[in-house]
Amino acid sequence: MSGRITRDEAAHVARLARLRFSDEELDELAAQLSAVLDHAADVEALDVTDIAPTSHPHPLVNVTRADEVRPSLDRDEVLAQAPSVDDGQFRVPPILGEAP
């Protein structure tokens, strides 16, 4: 166990990901992720500065569609799957912060 990730770092990342963990869970998580990152030290150590990144296995470009309207979904079918609905809309608890 290398301690590459601290409990605080794990907690920070958990906040970004909107997940909650107990302190014990955070410690375990930090240890497991440290082990994964230890294994990834081979990648981390590699000098690959001259190699371009590949985000995608196949080099496609300019895939687009025509600007033509297609049928939307039936609203009742959509809202039937929602946890809470009001007045044809998705209902959520009050939102405290602002959108970025």
């Binding site: 209902r91 959520v92 009050p94 939102i95």
Partner: peptide, 17 residues
């Protein structure tokens, strides 16, 4: 934002379209 006089942080709930 519904309720609370339309102010975001006083609202009772919110609806999304």
């Amino acid at each position: 934002h519904i309720g609370g006089g339309g102010r975001i942080h006083d609202a009772d709930y919110a609806l999304v379209d």
